[in-house]
Write a protein that binds this DNA or RNA. Structure first.
Length: 509
DNA sequence: AAAAAAG
């Protein structure tokens, strides 16, 4: 481990980091900070949650000097408003020991405060493309002296949706400048495109060549969902022992809102964030989730990239993402800064081809998603990562799934309605729902063991598969009829284990 | 095709 001081980081920044408990530099920081400080153009690539922001942020702050003159000298461009706020906060922290000031420029907010801060002489601007261009057009944001330029989530900023804006922004900053592009994912064609905006960039990949493509601290579970059953399965995951915060991703804004309402009705402490919400509501959701007042965040891909929240133990893909890059970024909301996490993905029938693509691209070596049943919640409470399976697929444990008894499901639902805050609306077709929960399932015998064998057979032997199947196969207390959660119930700390009968056969790739 | 990003 290298300390920041050893990398040439100024004392005031070292102290600002120390206040946050950050002492040792991560590999991407060790590699990019010494290059960024003297002004080397960098394409920085490192897995999710491994410290990229400070990798570019520290050199930006130091290159402006200890007491910079007023005026925008650094520009950091990000793809979403929430990430803008987060990166702003990081940069504000880094500059807390010096007069350098930072401003966040993004849409959905009043212009006034942002303009005031620019007029007051902010030196570092963190912004989203639309508002940056807007203020630049209004001659309220002068970018002609921004000699430090960063694209965070660079591959996203350079994709078709953003590229015209980015080209516009690059046309407004000095031709002679220091340019840094960072992301966890950098496809070859994007790297080639990126070079147009850089001079002699060096491409840093802070990854162990022996590692897979996925983040080692995250385990992955993939299931083919019974669509009528998905809400129920997700509700069961949310009752897993040892669960900390959870982020659930949907494909559309409408689905995010519906699921948020549904899980809220079931008594979970939910927040949501998507583009149909007011910016105020979006920020309230994020703040509540970060602070722990809410422990379930339902989001579109607006939250897929960059968002850093402590103690997210589960990521759930309610709908499978479109490609492997989005998969990595979504899953990367957990397993950050060395912590462990689990990513559960549901694949609808019509999306099986998407799974095939992701499976191949990420080298999971999982031929078919496993069937899922809401009656087997223990499938989803595995936070322990068995040796030899890091960052790989983990499949169902060899336990027998048990069907939810309709009457008990109804009891659980009734309990939700009678405790604490009333649901926003009554569940529809209460009895019918409960009936359906029981009747949707196919026979479940061997749900665990057969899938494990199936997956084991897919192992090509390249990776060790030891360490799986170490669990008790019991966990009867979780098999069915577990009451719906009470409001404010907290499940904190620990990494699975305990009463969670998690575990399972691990599959190499 | 969806989501994001100005209003």
């Amino acid at each position: 481990m290298t300390t920041f001081a050893e990398l040439g980081v100024d004392q005031d920044i070292v102290e600002a980091l120390a206040v946050k408990g950050i002492v040792d530099a991560f590999p991407i920081q060790e590699q990019t900070i010494p290059l960024g400080l003297p002004g080397q153009d960098i394409i920085g690539q490192a897995k999710t949650g491994t410290g990229k922001t400070f990798g570019f942020g520290i050199p930006v702050v130091q290159r402006l000097g200890p007491t910079p003159a007023p005026g925008v000298q650094a520009l950091i461009v990000v793809p979403t408003r929430e990430l803008c706020v987060q990166v702003y906060e990081d940069m504000d922290m880094l500059t807390s020991g010096r007069p350098t000031s930072v401003v966040a420029i993004y849409g959905g907010k009043a212009y006034e405060g942002q303009i005031d801060q620019l007029k007051a002489g902010a030196q570092i601007v963190v912004g989203t493309p639309g508002r940056l261009i807007d203020l630049n057009n209004q001659r309220l944001l002068d970018l002609s002296h921004a000699t430090e330029v960063v694209l965070d989530e660079a591959d996203k900023m350079l994709d078709l949706g953003f590229l015209p804006d980015i080209e516009k922004i690059f046309s407004k900053v000095p031709a002679v400048r220091h340019t840094q592009l960072f992301s966890a994912t950098m496809p070859g064609p994007i790297v080639a495109l990126a070079r147009r905006f850089m001079s002699n960039p060096i491409h840093i990949r802070a990854t162990d060549p022996d590692e897979g493509l996925t983040q080692a601290n995250i385990n992955h579970l993939v299931y083919r969902a019974h669509s009528l059953d998905k809400d129920e399965v997700i509700a069961r995951i949310l009752q897993a022992e040892g669960r900390g915060k959870t982020v659930i991703f949907t494909r559309t804004k409408r689905a995010a809102q519906r699921l948020s309402d549904e899980l809220g009705d079931r008594g979970f402490n939910t927040a949501s964030v998507h583009g149909d919400m007011s910016q105020e509501a979006r920020e309230r959701s994020m703040a509540g989730f970060k602070a722990g007042k809410k422990d379930v965040l339902i989001a579109t891909d607006v939250a897929a990239r960059g968002i850093d929240v402590d103690d997210v133990t589960h990521v759930i893909n309610h709908t499978i993402p479109d490609d492997e890059k989005t998969y990595l970024h979504r899953a990367g909301r957990t397993g950050r800064a060395g912590k462990t996490g689990i990513a559960v993905t549901f694949v609808d029938w019509e999306d099986l081809h998407k799974w095939a693509l992701i499976n191949r691209a990420l080298e999971f070596g999982q031929p078919e998603p496993v069937e899922t049943y809401s009656s087997s919640p223990h499938l989803f409470s595995d936070l322990d990562i068995p040796a030899g399976t890091k960052g790989r697929i983990v499949t169902a444990p060899k336990t027998q799934a048990v069907r939810v008894q309709p009457e008990r499901a109804a009891d659980a639902a009734a309990e939700v309605e009678t405790n604490g805050q009333a649901p926003r609306r009554r569940r529809r077709r209460r009895g019918g729902d409960a009936e359906r929960v029981g009747s949707t399932f196919e026979p479940v015998e061997g749900a665990g063991s057969s899938t494990s064998e199936q997956n084991g057979a897919s192992d090509d032997g390249a990776r060790s598969t030891e360490g799986g199947g170490t669990h008790d196969g019991g966990g009867k207390e979780h098999h069915d009829g577990k009451p719906a959660p009470r409001r404010r119930r907290r499940r904190r700390g620990g990494s699975g284990g305990g009463s969670a009968p998690a575990g399972g056969a691990a599959v190499g790739a």
